[in-house]
Amino acid sequence: MSTIKDIILSYRDKPGGIIEAYHAVQKEYNYLPEETIATAASTFGVSEAQAYGVATFYSYLSVEQRGKYIIRMCESAPCHVAGAEALIKAFEAALGIMAGETTADGKFTLELTECVGQCQATPVITINNVPYLNMSPEQVPAVLALCK
């Protein structure tokens, strides 16, 4: 695994590259560990407050530790009418956590999200950004079993 510092430094010459650097850190660590903010601030010449402000503006970036598998459940209107609520409840029941939480073993994080652009096959979830289409509560155990 590359160090956080190495990842961030590789974006040093990219104007406005702080968000790209955050994405790259998150790709390896699944969230932005604490030192990310200070390192990014010094690399891109902004205050830590600004670097933190950027990190917390975007819903895809997380300054809190998350699970190995991040399950995002779309609740925008087209998914809502297609049964997103029942699906969300099924995931919460199967994992024993509420949306916004991470399982105690650090394996799964459940998040609510808005439209992920796959509305031809609602309701939709994504697991680590891979979309799963036309979901139903019955499919939840099988989908979770795919996450080793």
Binding site: P15, G17, H23, T113
Partner: peptide, 21 residues
């Protein structure tokens, strides 16, 4: 450049702010 899941960034000046980091 990749966005971060903020709907408002589709507004053109917000988008520009986002590219600027």
């Amino acid at each position: 450049r990749m966005g971060g899941g903020a709907y408002v960034c589709g507004e053109e000046t917000a988008l520009i702010e986002s590219i600027e980091g």
